[in-house]
Design a protein around this nucleic acid. Structure first.
Lengths: 207, 207
DNA sequence: CTATGTGAATTTATTCACAGCA
DNA sequence: TGCTGTGAATAAATTCACATAG
């Protein structure tokens, strides 16, 4: 490895490549060129080669990349090689959809627990996950669950984040529409659907 | 305006600022300094000032920014000042959650129509939106709906995208986990939830 | 004295062009 | 000949420092 640091932008693209590779693998192909992958995921071929070059030589000149080997390498870098358990907090509309969502499994995630503050929901079972009372959050550390998914209204988001941190969670996926503050050791990724949509009209030329 | 181009990254941050400003406005404040806003949304104060400087002078030195004026300006730049109608395709778990999601309204969007391929769902009503058969997609142009939201399984995503484009849609919000190809005149923004989650373990230091 | 606005410096990321290996 | 890997060139974004206005 000739480089000392993998750029953040490269890390952001790795899951994209991973998706393309999984797709390729499903179709039984063993090798893929940077150009093939580029067409598949919508990134330039030279960008892909540059990105891969940050973590070593994986391609074979004249042939391309070994799909299986590259898949394993990317999973390792992203630390997706060990299955991760996540706790979902908030089983409303969005939370329910997340429980039913198959995309998590693709990357080795499992929503192992779900919590809700609404007593009527506690005890109910969705997709084999029993909804627990939110006071049980403190049991996460004992249960070795180190990821949290926040799907509660934004007014409650910071409080839940604090509780998750207290329960020993190391990473948080925040679906609420607000910025949450956590200690430096905890990583937060916020996904705000409306905010992405809000960018869309800007890019649409006046008709 | 001294600059010829607003950087993409600045555009990406504008909805973030907008959210902060709306929040500030709700709390009855009329002015906000770059530092206050920075604390609220998690961006550096100098970054905020730089971003704002791309589209003119809005602040008052010694005082800060006029919340209402700045809100209006950002909305105008993002073209959120005119209400936009969107069509949702795919009323499964995610689609249903999107129909119930309040975040769209915040930015002036309305999911005006919903489509599904499942005949059992057609005619059903969720949140005042009647689900129509997918063959009705062609009526979008007539109904002046120029945004599409794809919430179908990835196998169907490209087909739906093609139909949306044919129906005259100018922008697409793609929730499916695949890259879709459209003519240059159409803008696509893809939100892949699992892909963001996939980045999370990388940033979590080994314990 | 406070908080903006912005050139300049720095850092980071993208693009190119081509050497080098199968 | 085909496709990777990478230094160098270019472009873009961030950060800083401070002049400037209220």
């Amino acid at each position: 490895m000739r480089y000392c640091r993998i750029p953040d932008e490269t890390i952001r693209r790795l899951p994209v490549y991973l998706r393309g590779l999984l797709f390729t693998s499903e179709h039984g192909r063993e090798n893929i060129s940077s150009q093939n992958l580029a067409d598949l995921v919508g990134v330039n071929a030279w960008q892909i080669r540059k990105d891969f070059s940050y973590f070593g030589d994986f391609g074979t000149r004249g042939v391309g990349y070994d799909v299986e080997k590259l898949t394993a390498k990317i999973k390792k870098i992203l630390k997706l090689d060990i299955a991760q358990k996540a706790a979902l907090v908030g089983v409303g509309n969005l939370g329910s959809a997340l429980l039913a969502y198959h995309g998590f499994v693709t990357y080795g995630f499992e929503i192992a627990v779900a919590f809700d503050a609404n007593h009527k929901k506690v005890g109910r079972k969705i997709k084999n996950v029993v909804i627990e009372d939110i006071s049980n959050l403190r049991t996460l550390k004992r249960r070795k669950i180190s990821l949290g998914i926040i799907a509660v209204p934004y007014q409650a988001a910071q409080v839940i984040a604090d509780k998750l941190v207290k329960a020993g969670v190391r990473g948080i996926l925040n679906f609420s529409s607000c910025y949450i503050t956590v200690p430096k050791k905890v990583k937060v990724i916020t996904i705000d659907i409306a905010m992405d949509l809000a960018r869309l009209p800007y890019y649409i030329p006046a008709s």
